[in-house]
């Protein structure tokens, strides 16, 4: 899941893991993209770079990028997923992925 990456940026691979992993509790939390993070669009999704901790994270799904960008517009992660038309069956895997983004400080609680 994590790796020390090309030329030293700490690279995290934030894809959509299987459901049932930790993170479900995050659905009720208000999140936002960390203001120190920039997103760069890529064919598979986006690269996220945290200028503070120099972490580079791969958002490996276009839906992940949409949700990440819209986090601050909605009261909770669940509300954001709903607003972005993400099927509820996929919510647990999104929760897991955002848990990993939270621990790498790409997103933060607000």
């Amino acid at each position: 899941m994590s790796a020390t990456g090309m030329s030293d940026a700490s690279v995290l691979d934030s894809g959509l893991a299987d459901s049932g992993l930790p993170g479900a509790g995050l659905l009720g939390v208000a999140l936002e993209l960390n203001p120190q993070v920039a997103l760069r669009p890529e064919p598979f999704g986006a690269l996220a770079y945290h200028y503070g901790n120099r972490r580079l994270v791969f958002l490996k799904h276009l839906d992940m990028v949409t949700v990440a960008k819209n986090l601050s517009l909605h009261p909770t992660l669940a509300a954001t997923l709903q607003a972005c038309d993400i099927a509820p069956s996929r919510w647990p895997s999104f929760a897991t992925a955002f848990q990993s983004l939270l621990s790498s400080e790409i997103v933060r609680e607000r």
């Binding site: 691979d13 934030s14 894809g15 760069r40 669009p41 690269l47 791969f58």
Partner: peptide
């Protein structure tokens, strides 16, 4: 997603 699938992605190049 595994690190392996990430590597496959990167081998194809980025924008």
């Amino acid at each position: 997603m595994s690190v392996e699938s990430l590597v496959q992605q990167l081998k194809g190049g980025l924008d």
